[in-house]
Simulated scan of single mutants.
Amino acid sequence: MTTIADRLAIAHSRIAQAAQKCDRQPSSIRLLAVSKTKPVEDIIAAYQAGQRCFAENYVQEGAEKITALKATYPDIEWHFIGPLQSNKTNIVAQHFDWMHTVSRDKIAQRLNDQRPNELTPLNVCIQINISAEDTKSGIDTDQMLPLAKLITQLPNLTLRGLMAIPTATADTELQLKEFSTLHKLFQELQLHYPSIDTLSMGMSNDLDAAIRCGSTMVRIGSAIFGERNYPA
């Protein structure tokens, strides 16, 4: 039976192999361990295996884990990667280090206003609806620069890059098409804001295509922690 440490090692090996295929340095790609629905004991096991960056999809669950672990494990970097309602922005602003799914002016403004002064600015990514699916969150591509301009004017936020959840498909060509589009948008954003450095895209089923198209941050959950524990 494999352990969390074993599965983390496999994930890092997959990232390294994918990077080498396209002449990239594996160190240029960060692994986010998506720990939603998993207990703090699993996070500690991953931490003890060397993992420091964790991602949560549910606001309250994430805040509870951060509160439980921050005193003993202060060097964990916490990323919020789920949809966010405006009435819960204060939780993300007060607890997390990164927010990947900014897609509205109102959300950005509230995160800025609610970020405690004693914390460093919240790192944010703009979520693009790269597959143009009605059921997906994120902005249309033509809204990227106006939202980026607003974010860069907010002192308690630091714009780091773009994030997307592409079409769920095993079609490699479609994966590459959507990821290539996002990479071009990323390069466009860098022309306006050279400090942009993060392209958050790629999960277990499309990791190779994402890395081939320039991903700097991949999000892996069940391949590390096992199947998720949803309530009945």
Results as ranks from 00 to 15, higher is better:
Glu188Cys: 10
Tyr58Leu: 12
Leu122Tyr: 04
Ala19Trp: 00
Ser131Met: 08
Asp197Asn: 14
Glu77His: 14
Thr89Gln: 12
Ile44Leu: 06
Lys136Glu: 09
Ile224Tyr: 00
Arg30Phe: 04
Thr198Glu: 05
Ala33Trp: 02
Gln190Cys: 11
Lys184Ala: 06
Asp140Val: 09
Asp97Leu: 14
Phe80Asp: 01
Thr67Val: 15
Phe54Thr: 03
Leu145Val: 15
Ser13Pro: 04
Ala210Gly: 08
Asn90His: 12
Leu182Cys: 07
Leu8Gln: 03
Ala16Lys: 05
Lys88Asn: 14
Asp142Val: 12
Thr198Asn: 06
Arg24Glu: 02
Val102Trp: 05
Asp142Met: 09
Glu173His: 07
Ser86Trp: 06
Val92Pro: 03
Leu207Ala: 09
Pro26Thr: 03
Leu8Tyr: 03
Ala19Glu: 03
Ala223Asn: 05
Glu64Cys: 14
Ile126Glu: 01
Arg52Glu: 13
Thr169Pro: 07
Ile15Met: 03
Ile4Val: 10
Asn117Met: 13
Glu133Leu: 06
Gln48Phe: 10
Leu32Asp: 01
Cys213Tyr: 02
Pro39Ser: 09
Ile44Ala: 02
Asp134Ser: 14
Val59Ala: 10
Ser35Trp: 06
Ile165Asp: 01
Arg14Thr: 03
Glu41Met: 09
Pro231Ser: 09
Glu41Asp: 15
Ala55His: 02
Ser86Leu: 13
Thr67Pro: 12
Gln175Cys: 00
Phe225Thr: 09
Ser195Phe: 15
Tyr73Met: 10
Gly82Met: 11
Asp113His: 02
Ile81His: 04
Ile151Asn: 02
Tyr193Gln: 11
Thr72Val: 13
Met163Ser: 08
Ala49Asp: 06
Thr167Ser: 11
Tyr73Ile: 12
Thr216Arg: 05
His12Tyr: 08
Asp197Thr: 12
Lys38Ile: 05
Ala16Ile: 00
Met99Phe: 10
Met217Asn: 02
Thr89Ala: 15
Leu31Glu: 02
Gln109Thr: 10
Thr67Phe: 13
Arg7Trp: 08
Asp206Trp: 01
Glu61His: 15
Ala33Arg: 04
Ser215Thr: 03
Gln51Asn: 09
Pro146Ala: 12
Glu133Lys: 05
Lys65His: 09
Ser13Met: 05
Ile224Cys: 05
Asp134Lys: 11
Ser131Phe: 05
Gln51Glu: 11
Glu77Asp: 10
Phe179Gly: 00
Asp23Ser: 00
Tyr58Glu: 06
Ser222Phe: 00
Ile29Asn: 07
Ala5Cys: 12
Tyr73Ser: 12
Leu159Asn: 07
His100Thr: 04
Ser137Leu: 12
Asp206Glu: 13
Ser131Glu: 00
Asn90Glu: 13
Gly221Arg: 01
Ile43Gln: 04
Thr101Ile: 10
His192Gln: 15
Thr120Tyr: 12
Lys38Glu: 07
Gly138Thr: 03
Ile91Tyr: 05
Ala93Tyr: 01
Ala108Leu: 06
Thr172Asp: 14
Pro146Cys: 15
Thr181Arg: 15
His192Thr: 15
Gly202Trp: 04
Ser27Arg: 00
Val102Tyr: 07
His12Lys: 10
Leu182His: 05
Tyr58Trp: 14
Ser215Lys: 01
Leu8Lys: 10
Ala164His: 04
Ile130Arg: 02
Ala223Cys: 11
Ala132Pro: 06
Ser13Arg: 06
Ala164Ile: 07
Leu162Tyr: 08
Val218Glu: 02
Ile130Trp: 06
Leu207Cys: 14
Pro155Tyr: 14
Leu69Thr: 13
Asn129Arg: 08
Arg7Leu: 08
Thr167Met: 13
Pro231Met: 02
Leu199Asn: 07
Asn90Ala: 07
Thr89Asp: 14
